[in-house]
């Protein structure tokens, strides 16, 4: 797995107005990796994802994707470059059909030509979506909606998929099912960053993890290293 970095975040600072949300954050994701971003509610995880997606622009530092500088690109160009974000809170298009939601995922010119192929792929990962394809998206259950937004993200033909707090409000059995599918997806060559509040689960599922505290990276390492780290054990596992 020791390969070149797919995404490199180099000491970025991000502000919301006069409030500094991220402080000198650096991060690296390697190709084919499953990376966890862990932290409490306001630690800056979502801000970091939004900044990589181009919804925020950093005041300092830079972001590189496949060696190309994407720091100040607009969100739609970043999607086209191959980064998709599955936002927190699911954010389906509620009044559109499941199929239309998926088709929206293939909006970029690059993804349009591969639409049918990718649809098949999504249905293979999430067969329930095929069964529900003509249903209005808001009538799906929470777990199905989460599968829909992941499927929608896959439709964009991404190289890197960033998933924000997907397990929020879902039953453990469904969370496990989705994690299993994510691993299948990763094994097809995708790189995945996922954001979670559940430390134990994240460290267990990820290859490596970064822990964020108050907008700063406080720790990073492989799952193995983090499990052994005393600070983590004390703070998060209570042992």
């Amino acid at each position: 797995m020791a390969q070149e970095a797919l995404l490199k975040v180099n000491s970025i600072d991000v502000f919301h107005g006069s409030f500094q949300a991220l402080w000198n954050i650096s991060l690296e994701v390697r190709k084919g990796e499953m990376l966890a971003l862990i932290g409490a509610n306001t630690s800056g995880k979502s801000t970091l994802l939004d900044t990589i997606s181009g919804l925020n622009h950093p005041a300092g530092g830079s972001i590189q994707f496949e060696g190309r500088n994407i720091t100040n690109l607009d969100p739609y160009k970043i999607v086209d470059a191959g980064i998709t974000q599955i936002p927190e809170g699911r954010r389906i298009f509620p009044d559109m059909s499941v199929l239309s939601n998926l088709i929206m995922g293939s909006y970029t010119p690059r993804a349009r030509s591969k639409r049918e192929e990718n649809l098949k792929k999504v249905y293979r990962h999430f067969p329930i979506l095929l069964k529900r394809k003509n249903q209005v998206a808001k009538t799906l259950s929470g777990g199905e909606q989460q599968m829909l937004v992941i499927g929608r993200g896959l439709m964009s033909e991404p190289k890197l998929m960033m998933i924000d707090e997907m397990s929020l409000g879902l039953a453990p059995i469904i969370i496990n099912e989705i994690f299993r599918t994510l691993k299948e997806i990763r094994d097809t060559g995708l790189t995945i960053i996922f954001v979670e509040q559940n430390v134990r689960k994240s460290i267990q599922e990820a290859d490596r993890a970064y822990i964020l505290e108050n907008g700063r990276v406080s720790l990073c390492g492989t799952s193995q290293e983090l499990c052994e780290e005393e600070k983590v054990r004390k703070a998060y596992f209570g042992i």
Binding site: L55, P87, P94, M96, S100, M104, R112, S156
Partner: peptide, 26 residues
Amino acid sequence: LRRTYMGRAITAASQDNKAAQLMGVN
């Protein structure tokens, strides 16, 4: 609005602007 990419993008942006941007919609 139902069948073209631009039409769907208009509908998507009206339902969730951020999600539409994350789909690659300008």
